[in-house]
Design a protein around this nucleic acid. Structure first.
Length: 711
DNA sequence: GCAAGGTC
């Protein structure tokens, strides 16, 4: 009797194999680990997939509408996925001739498809008839054994529902993308890769909406009245924003040149509870704010740390740290590092983590494993320490913040000011990445009189809503249920790659905006969450056996077909307009000859450069080496755009002859040093502007201007 | 190649 268990990923195959027998032996085939044990004359082989092993692909790429598709090995489609082949080969070889199969992938819709396809295409079609399903929600020994002893049949409605998700996404995404790209090619014989999809298009649409809000924003003037008092105290008038000049004048007149009388002083203590452990989204957010890492980069680094065994599984949405992860032991092991030890020793027993609300059936929150890393590069080290200090501080004590709220009267006008300082650092002691307010409290009490130096009336304007950055956009997608924790960072980077959006503070250019306008006209559904919602109900209906998968797909093809015909009919108009928008989006500035400076691509050097739109009359070009970004900021010396390059990022003028940089240093204070608490100052270095700590040389903290602006 | 979804 030979039994084969198919798992979703190598880590879970290891856990499952070890939970089911004490006689488990680890082997490997083509570097792919697998496990074997024998109990009561039955041999069991535990094998692993690596996520999806198969992917949809056209069966005939010549068709206009790519409607005929089938599963092919992932490594055939994507040369970067070569490592997948070894896993497929291992399954094919080691599952051969088995009498019994167990589908033990994650119990969710994608896991169901992964296991089903592994059975169907790697183990052979007949393996499905001999297969059962393990259903577990955590990879604890208890859960695994229970699932193994109580197998359930494979739910083929669930399988169909998952397959339908793949097919629908493929049909809509690939076909609409193809038709848009073709329309530009046929109208202008230029190749501009365009794309649309159930997730990427609504994401772009969110950004376009924000862009339009900003564009249409009409600033409204308002006035703030402040009183400058003795001891450098600035108090604000109770009214806050005053939108009528007359009202502001009235208040000013009322105040006259009277002194301020303190009418109330309230002291309060506020608790600041420890942070909650990281799930992937909050790690991406924090690493973006603290280090300026893009979410994609954070995900890659976290994956490396996980593969090396230093931190736990990163693609989790859990903010829970169950006792079963053994946090006492992890903290003890972390203590082998002297720096960590100081913090661990300061924790009060008994240890209890402050957990967040979000959960994940398959994994706990991101945490260090206790194995201390060696040979990490700078960025890996930064992210690792962020994870460790967050983990430690989750067990810390509440911090206490004291606040002072003071009310004052100047004649009949009420003003107030407040101060904050830390009374007890608590968990903040272990987590150096948070801003702490530590202001001096003036020594005053009710009834005191304070001298008024001046009453100020500041004219301001209301501001448009802020642009998204990558971190806030990920949070927005999460809120709307678009994409998944593992794909959101990738989706955003696709929008950058296609050149629909640019900048750290994400700005949509003409191409992105026009693409959404076009799609709104021809396929409104794909520009909003509507399509996701529609898919969701259809998939639920398939799962509940209210409708068949083939029915849903056929209906989708009919709807899609008419969208594609519509695009086809108008393709010259669509193509020309999209190309026009594309060209406009490539403009980076004004040439000295009056033409536009445009991003161009050289087939000869296979690289980008900036050239003049008046070519060949004007032959001006500027080099754009790999890794260089052209910024919106203009050089203050010559007016050409600035560029950023290098690591850490440096800035300079597009024109190399203009000088290293076209900007004088401001030495402006831009924040507080996360390492020592001194001021962070923007200053000019040999290679351009950077942010440094005023505590230099005692504290050598630096970061790039880009990282700072990313905040 | 184009999508979105798993994973190393």
């Amino acid at each position: 009797m030979h039994e084969v268990i198919i798992c979703e990923k190598p880590k879970s195959s290891e856990k499952i194999a070890n939970a089911l027998s004490r006689n488990t032996i680890k082997n490997s085939y083509k570097k792919v680990p697998y496990y074997e044990f024998e109990e009561n004359g039955k041999k069991t082989t535990v094998l692993s997939a690596v996520g999806h092993l198969y992917s949809l692909s056209p069966t005939n790429s010549k068709q206009d509408k790519i409607f005929d598709i089938d599963w092919v090995p992932l490594y055939d489609k994507d040369k970067q996925k070569k490592y997948v082949k070894n896993y497929v080969d291992a399954i094919k070889k080691l599952a051969k001739g088995a009498d019994k199969f167990i589908h033990a992938c994650d119990y969710d819709i994608e896991g169901t498809v992964i296991g089903y396809n592994a059975l169907k295409y790697a183990c052979g079609e007949d393996s499905i008839d001999k297969a059962t399903r393990m259903k577990f929600s955590t990879l604890t020994k208890e859960d695994i054994v229970k699932a193994y002893e109580n197998p359930i049949p494979i739910d083929f409605h669930q399988v169909d529902s998952g397959i339908a998700r793949h097919v629908l996404d493929f049909l809509f995404g690939v076909n609409i993308s193809k038709y848009l790209t073709d329309s530009v090619r046929e109208a202008t014989s230029r190749y501009v890769q365009l794309s649309a999809g159930r997730v990427q298009t609504p994401t772009l649409s969110i950004l376009v909406d924000r862009e339009k809000e900003i564009k249409n924003f009409k600033p409204i003037p308002y006035w703030l009245i402040k009183a400058a008092l003795e001891d450098d105290i600035i108090a604000d008038h109770k009214a806050g924003k005053i939108f009528e000049r007359k009202e502001a004048d009235g208040i000013l007149a009322d105040c006259g040149d009277a002194d301020a009388v303190v009418t109330d002083v309230t002291l309060r203590e506020n608790k600041r509870t420890p942070p909650v452990p990281f799930d992937l989204g909050s790690l991406q957010s924090e690493a973006y704010g603290v280090f300026g890492f893009s979410p994609k980069r954070t995900q890659q680094i976290a994956q490396n740390l996980y593969t090396e065994g230093y931190t736990s599984y990163p693609r989790t949405s859990s903010q829970k740290l169950p006792k079963s992860i053994g946090y006492d032991k992890i903290l003890k092991q972390l203590s082998k590092n002297a720096e960590f030890k100081k913090h661990v020793d300061a924790l009060k027993k008994p240890l209890k983590p402050n957990e967040g609300k979000k959960t994940d059936e398959a994994h706990p929150a991101i945490h260090p494993t206790g194995t201390l890393p060696t040979g990490l590069d700078t960025n890996e080290q930064k992210l690792y320490e962020l994870i460790v200090y967050r983990f430690i501080s989750v067990f810390g004590e509440d911090a206490l913040q004291e606040s002072m709220k003071t009310k004052l009267n100047i004649n009949s006008q009420e003003f107030s000011f407040s101060r904050k300082r830390m009374a007890k650092m608590g968990w903040l002691e272990h987590y150096p990445f948070r801003k702490i307010e530590d202001e001096k409290f003036p020594d005053i009490k009710k009834g005191d009189t304070l001298k008024v130096n001046e009453i100020l009336c500041e004219e301001k304007e209301t501001k448009p809503p802020a642009r998204y950055n990558q971190a806030s956009l990920i949070r927005e997608l999460e809120k709307r249920g678009l994409g998944t924790k593992s794909t959101r960072a990738n989706i955003i980077s696709i929008l950058y790659d296609r050149k629909y959006i640019e900048g750290q503070k994400i700005q949509v250019n003409e191409l992105g905006e026009h693409l959404i306008d076009t799609l709104k006209e021809y396929s409104e559904d794909i520009t909003s969450e509507e399509l996701t919602r529609k898919f969701e109900t259809e998939l639920e209906d398939i799962m509940a056996d209210k409708i068949t998968k083939d029915n849903v797909i056929e209906e989708a093809k009919v709807g899609l077909s008419s969208i594609l015909d519509d695009i086809e009919k108008n393709k010259s108009k669509i193509g020309e307009k999209l190309y026009e928008a594309y060209q406009e989006s490539r403009i980076v500035g004004q040439c000295k000859c009056g033409g536009n400076l445009v991003m161009k691509y050289s087939y000869r050097t296979k690289g980008t450069f900036v050239g003049c739109s008046a070519y060949p009359k004007c032959k001006v070009t500027y080099p754009i080496p790999r890794g260089t970004n052209v910024l919106k900021t203009k050089c203050e010396k010559c007016g050409l755009p600035m560029i950023s390059f290098g690591k850490p990022r440096q800035r300079a003028c597009l024109d190399p002859k203009c000088g290293r940089n076209g900007k004088e240093s401001t030495n402006e204070v831009v924040g507080v040093c996360p390492q020592c608490g001194e001021q962070l100052i923007k200053r000019m270095g040999r290679y351009g502007e950077f942010i440094g700590c005023s505590g230099f040389p005692k504290c050598r903290f630096t970061k790039s201007v880009e990282e700072q602006e990313a905040k």
